[in-house]
Computed example of a mutant assay.
Amino acid sequence: MKKVVLLGAGYANMALLKSLPSNVWNENEYEFLLISNTPLHYFSVLLHEVASGVCEEEITLPLNAILPKNVKFIQDKVIRIEQNLIQAENDTYEYNILVVGLGFQSDNFGIVGIKEYADSIVNYQGALALKQKIVNALRDYAVKGDVESFKIAVCGAGFTGIEFIGSFVDELVQIRKELNIHQEKIKITCIEAMPNILPMFNPKLSSSAKTYLEEKNITFELGCKILECEKDGIIVEKNGQKEKIDASLIIWTAGVKGNQVMEDSTFFTTQRSKVEINAYLQPINQANQELMQNVFVIGDCAALKDPLTQRFYPPTAQMAMQQGEFLAKLLVQKLQGKNFSEEFSYKPKGTICSIGSQYAIGYVGKMNIKGKSALWLKRAIEANWKFKLAGLKAFSKTF
């Protein structure tokens, strides 16, 4: 019996499994196995809300309740990928067809001190831990009654950084009230090397987001190249001069790369823990290219070039879902021994960045949107994904 092994339970692999036609499960020539280090599918685009304390279980769905019944789930941590074999923490697993849909990790770009002194938002457990660390730090600060303010530095003004700040500054109102901390005692600074925030949006939208946060007392240090991270602050270069930005707590959101498993697997040729793939989502430019015929890489570990610009697409949930849906069609044909000539083509449907509970910016097609209408649309998209995975029961409190 052929074994189709899927690694990771993120957007890409879940979209794949939910897109497979029902007749696939009637075949007895192959079996599907999903390996993940967590029993949950979590909405990684909402990890910032877990870290900020806005939500927790609401962004997770138990795999045993949403996987097709013919898919066997094994909770194990993948260590390394080899030819026809997966090395994991608890066991080894053979495969005939492999789909790598593992998640991402923080990229510190070799900057000294980031690993030791900064926290990142890359997975569900890490986001929960960061939430608790923030609350504990603020609680200690309130008890000590320090004269100095409590300073939080967020490194990076891309999606994760800005969405976290927007979410946290709203949640902070209640936290301050509970701990009896005056507003002026907590300082939040966002440090960014680029001259503006959210560079993926047009300048007017980015400016509106910046103004919205500045009105909530967020300070932006733009055009600051981060040189080093220390226990109590960030060393930056601004206008050719070195300076230190003090911080009681440092959160790193300035970059991500593919899963460490890819880098640790000599089976693959990688760059920034990513594997370059072609229009059929298969690895290319590999030292072991002849061994890649039955291997597919989707989601955060995949590096796919835009055929028009020849630049790599940024990793997004939208991209991962479209790759999963496409690969479902390809796999059906492959498992039946048929040729498949259709190539993957990414079709962006728009992008929305939430900035707290009352504001968002984004675009759909050529139309720019901002304010509550943008926020409502983002929530509708998230609800649609939840419905696709679990139907109406996903919205039940007993699910």
Rank of each mutant, 00 (worst) to 15 (best):
P39I: 06
V112C: 07
E290P: 15
E243C: 05
K305A: 11
N196V: 12
N288F: 13
I361L: 13
E192R: 08
I74W: 13
F109D: 10
F73E: 00
K3T: 05
K366F: 15
I114W: 00
A380L: 14
E29R: 15
D76L: 05
L85A: 03
K329I: 11
Q333F: 14
W252T: 06
E215A: 07
H182A: 14
V24L: 11
C55V: 15
R176P: 07
S44D: 05
E31P: 12
L198C: 04
Y124M: 00
D146N: 15
I59D: 06
C224R: 06
V99Q: 06
G223R: 10
I186D: 02
W252N: 00
Y363G: 09
E148R: 12
F296W: 02
G53N: 04
Y313T: 06
V99E: 01
L179F: 00
E228F: 01
K177C: 09
S208M: 10
L16F: 08
E243G: 10
V256L: 07
G299P: 01
V256Q: 01
G356H: 09
K305S: 02
L392C: 09
K69I: 06
M14A: 14
I218S: 06
A360S: 14
S345E: 10
T309E: 00
A320Q: 11
K210Q: 01
S248H: 12
G223Y: 09
K393D: 13
E82Q: 08
R379M: 05
Y124D: 03
K18M: 13
Q183P: 02
N13P: 07
K2R: 11
N196C: 13
V99D: 02
K386D: 15
V50E: 08
V364W: 14
S373D: 14
I188F: 02
I250W: 07
S22F: 11
Q293L: 09
Y95P: 03
E325P: 05
L17W: 02
K334Y: 11
L205C: 07
A129G: 14
M262W: 13
L327H: 02
T269Q: 14
F296A: 03
F109I: 02
